[in-house]
Simulated assay, not measured.
Amino acid sequence: MAKRIDVSDLDIFYGSFKAVEGVSMSIEPRAVTAFIGPSGCGKSTVLRTLNRMHEVIPGGRVEGKVLLDGQDLYAKDVDPVGVRRTVGMVFQRPNPFPTMTIRDNVAAGLKLNGVKNKARLDEVVEKSLKGANLWNEVKDRLDKPGAGLSGGQQQRLCIARAIAVEPQVLLMDEPCSALDPISTLAIEDLINELKERYTIVIVTHNMQQAARVSDQTAFFNLKATGQPGKLVELDSTSKIFNNPTEKATEDYISGRFG
């Protein structure tokens, strides 16, 4: 299921403003790639181009290519909604649908895609909640509101909702920034399990988290405020943290700036 992503010469714009410039990278399947860098360097913007979420913002557009197993996600005949089904996303703050039950939160994407068979929906809900390590905690209250769960449980519910539609890639934009240390550990353990089935890309400001969960790390930076963000280097996580090629990467990881 997991797919490889190849990005080449990617420029990202919001109206006339160039937010990110000249990004080329390969993201491996069945692995975790972490995006790190100071605030405003474009890492979340790049993440959102991988499933065309940045286009939701008026004026959002790209130049260059994003290929998913060789298919150009920005080709004229490609449906952005279909892209987002294949490339799922989990946001910084848990965002379960507040008026929906736990069961309906997980099944929302399937229903949107026209699945009506109750037995099929129940089967996918159970499978997805198990996949998000949440089933045992909620199996007796599936008809209670999803918003009634703790923050860490809500984030795992959002992960269950994302994997219910069987994507090939999971994007996570600082998925632990609003969570306590115990919930963070649960999400990190889950990421480690999910990478056996998915390609995972995570944006994080937490250096230790990037070192713990990722197989490769991309460091982004910008020369000055108002300048476009750029990819400085991408390599195995151990190389980036122990022996980076670029001095700027070493300075950021060691805390000398950012």
Rank of each mutant, 00 (worst) to 15 (best):
V83M: 00
K127S: 13
Y198D: 10
G82F: 01
G37Y: 01
V83C: 00
E63L: 04
S128W: 01
G64M: 02
R61S: 02
C158A: 14
D79Q: 00
A75P: 03
N136T: 11
R212T: 15
E174F: 07
L149E: 04
P181T: 14
V20C: 03
A119T: 15
V83T: 02
K116L: 02
N192W: 06
A218Q: 05
L149R: 09
E196T: 15
L129M: 04
N117A: 04
P80I: 00
Q155E: 05
V78I: 06
E188T: 14
D104N: 13
T245R: 13
M100D: 10
R30I: 06
A34T: 14
D143M: 12
G114W: 06
T199G: 12
V203H: 09
S8M: 08
K65L: 01
V232T: 12
Q209A: 13
V32K: 08
G226I: 09
P29M: 07
S39W: 01
I12R: 01
L134A: 07
T101N: 06
L142I: 12
M207P: 10
E233C: 08
I159C: 10
V23G: 06
P228I: 08
S16K: 15
N242F: 05
K43W: 03
K111S: 06
D122W: 03
G148E: 07
D251G: 01
D72K: 02
N95R: 04
E126V: 07
A108E: 10
A162Y: 14
K195D: 08
V138Q: 04
L190E: 10
D251I: 02
K144F: 08
S39M: 03
T33M: 12
D143T: 15
F35G: 09
L234N: 07
M172A: 13
P96N: 06
S183M: 02
D251V: 02
E196G: 10
K144P: 01
F97G: 09
E63G: 06
P58R: 05
G37L: 01
Q216A: 10
V125M: 04
L179F: 05
G226R: 08
M25A: 14
T45D: 06
K118N: 02
S26F: 05
S150P: 04
P228R: 10
A31V: 14
I202V: 15
E166M: 03
D6N: 12
V32P: 12
Q209M: 11
M207V: 11
G148K: 12
A31N: 12
V62W: 00
L234Q: 11
S254R: 07
V169G: 13
D69K: 07
M1C: 06
K144A: 11
L234M: 12
D180W: 07
I12S: 02
N221Q: 05
A218T: 10
E166C: 02
S254Q: 08
D140V: 14
L110F: 09
V90W: 14
G109P: 12
P244L: 06
L222C: 06
Q71N: 14
S183C: 03
K127D: 13
P181K: 03
V23S: 04
A248F: 04
V7K: 04
V232I: 15
I182P: 01
P228G: 07
S8K: 15
L121T: 09
G88L: 11
